[in-house]
Structure formats: structure tokens, C-alpha cells
């Protein structure tokens, strides 16, 4: 591991100031919340010197609130906290399950949804679930605060829309209303401790007859970034979310996927399996919406 400096500013303003001055001086800087990606990268693939700016001690990154219209999840809140929050698990079981897939139980003491998003991996498990839930990224920087829809946040493999002077404060998720359910499923060759070969998140709202009135589908690990698949959502809206509708949504996900062949799976495999996951996650979301 190379030489590095570490700072843990006390306020959002001083964090932004430090990020700005580092950017201006050309200092390589990396924001750290739980560090479960950053520290691993520093020990393996990316060993150069840098300034680490810790944000997990900021009050603003640790806000967790459930409002009538919006659930706010601070960027540094560890998965372990979310996993044990019964209210959140009741409202957003799919999103919380996706957070429960980041690393092992021990790692989840630090790993956060915010970090998972900012790491901006194509295979990040929370990203399709956030997309399905229409999450919005709450960003702060030298120019003030701004909100970015989560599907526009990640711009490529390991890159996102934030400027060097910006960092993620938290995520806004619309509070589910009526008969709404979400689900996220990923495929890994093992049962845990692995990276998604493909992933699919689905959120559905049903009317009293069981017909789908709103749907959103996000898929991961099958393109440079996680994708919104509006064709899959369209295939579900207006249906009873039966097998035919789910198969149509699955086909839409397979059609939207543009994966690569690598050590984790082939193009053909990922295209097929992302559809299977959409179908299965859709059925779970439907059952949750009815429950």
C-alpha cells in the first residue's frame, strides 16, 4: 500500500472545502464511508498514494428518516443498521435485501448503500434495487446541493456524475403507498460472498383488483451501468402480473442487456439469467404488494 493521508472533517462545509482544495491542487482524493471497497482496492488493484476523506462521522450522512412521501437514507449508514430496521424492511424489503448482499455480516457493519452506489460498479447490488425504487441521489459540493435520479448517477464502469468537489449525502426514496412491493434478486454461483453475474430489481403497485398500476425494473451486471428497463415495466403495467406478463418482462430485460463474457459468465448466460431474475423478482414483488 502506498503513502496516504487521512482526514475526517467535522462538517459538510469543511468536507466540501477540503475536497475542493484537493481538487484544485491536483491531490488525488477519495471519499470513504465504510471503506469496504476503498480499502480493498488500496491493498490490491489500486495501490497509489492519495488523500482519504472520511464522511461517516458527519451527522448528515447518518440521517435515516421515514416520511409520508420520502424515505431518506444517509450515505454512510451501514447495511447492518438497515438490516435491523423493521420499519424499513417492511416498507422496502427488496432494497434492504440488496443492502444485505453487500459482503459478509462482518463487512455489513461498515458497508453502506451510499458507498455501493458511489463505487459505481456495474454489478453493485443496491443499484438496480434503488432504480426500481425511483431513488434520487442527494449530492453536495462547492456549488451547493443537487438531486440526481439514481439511474443517471453512474456514468460508466467505476465512474459517476459527481465532480471532485462533490460527495453523496444521502438517498431519497419515495415512500411506498397502497399495494406496493419491491424485490431484488441477483445470481451468483455461490450462496453468498460473491459478485452478481446478473441482478434485477422490481417495484410494483397493484390496484385492489390486483392489476399493476405502476412498475419499475432495474437490472445490473449486464451492461456498463445498471439500467432502467421501461419496456419491462410496460410489460407489467395493466396486467395481473401473471406468468405471461412476467415472461414478457423477462424478455424485455434480456433484450435490454448488453453484457460481456468474462470470468463470471458468458454473454448468452447473462442475457438469459437476467430475464429469469426479473421474472422471479417480479413475482416476489407482486406477492409482497398483495400481502
Amino acid at each position: 500500500m502506498g503513502d496516504y493521508a487521512y482526514a475526517a472533517p467535522a462538517t459538510v462545509d469543511s468536507t466540501v472545502e477540503l475536497l475542493s482544495s484537493s481538487a484544485n491542487s491536483g491531490t488525488r482524493t477519495q471519499v470513504l464511508a465504510g471503506g469496504t471497497d476503498v480499502l480493498v482496492q488500496m491493498r490490491s488493484t489500486d495501490r497509489g498514494a492519495r488523500l482519504i476523506v472520511d464522511i461517516k462521522q458527519l451527522a448528515e450522512t447518518n440521517v435515516l428518516s421515514v416520511g409520508e412521501d420520502e424515505i431518506y437514507i444517509g450515505a454512510a449508514i451501514p447495511s447492518a443498521i438497515l438490516n435491523e430496521n423493521a420499519e424499513l424492511k417492511g416498507l422496502l424489503p427488496g432494497l434492504i435485501e440488496s443492502a444485505d448482499l453487500i459482503g459478509s455480516t462482518q463487512i455489513q457493519g461498515r458497508a453502506s448503500i451510499g458507498g455501493n452506489l458511489c463505487n459505481s460498479s456495474p454489478a453493485g447490488d443496491t443499484i438496480p434495487a434503488l432504480i426500481a425504487n425511483s431513488a434520487v441521489c442527494h449530492i453536495v459540493g462547492a456549488d451547493g446541493e443537487r438531486d440526481v435520479p439514481v439511474e443517471d448517477f453512474v456514468t460508466g464502469v467505476g465512474t459517476n456524475c459527481m465532480a471532485p468537489h462533490e460527495f453523496l449525502l444521502g438517498l431519497r426514496v419515495p415512500t411506498p403507498k397502497g399495494n406496493t412491493g419491491d424485490a431484488y434478486l441477483r445470481f451468483i454461483p455461490r450462496t453468498e460472498m460473491d459478485i452478481a453475474v446478473a441482478g434485477a430489481g422490481v417495484r410494483l403497485t397493484l390496484d385492489d383488483s390486483g392489476a399493476c398500476t405502476a412498475a419499475r425494473v432495474g437490472i445490473g451486471a449486464v451492461a456498463p451501468t445498471a439500467l432502467v428497463v421501461s419496456e419491462a415495466a410496460d410489460a407489467l403495467i395493466g396486467t395481473q402480473v401473471d406468468d405471461d406478463a412476467l415472461n414478457a418482462a423477462a424478455d424485455a430485460c434480456s433484450a435490454a442487456a448488453s453484457p460481456i463474457s468474462d470470468k463470471r459468465g458468458t454473454v448468452e448466460y447473462r442475457i438469459k439469467v437476467v430475464g429469469v431474475l426479473c421474472k422471479r423478482a417480479g413475482a416476489i414483488a407482486r406477492d409482497r404488494a398483495k400481502a
Binding site: 450462496t191 460472498m193 468474462d262 470470468k263
Partner: peptide
């Protein structure tokens, strides 16, 4: 291409 335990997949206990 898979010189690590992430992608050289020995079973984990839950497998």
C-alpha cells in the same frame, strides 16, 4: 483471470 478467492470460487459454508 481469476487469481483471487472472489472469482476462484471455493465453496463458502452456506453452499
Amino acid at each position: 483471470e481469476n487469481a483471487g478467492f472472489l472469482d476462484y470460487r471455493v465453496p463458502v459454508t452456506s453452499d
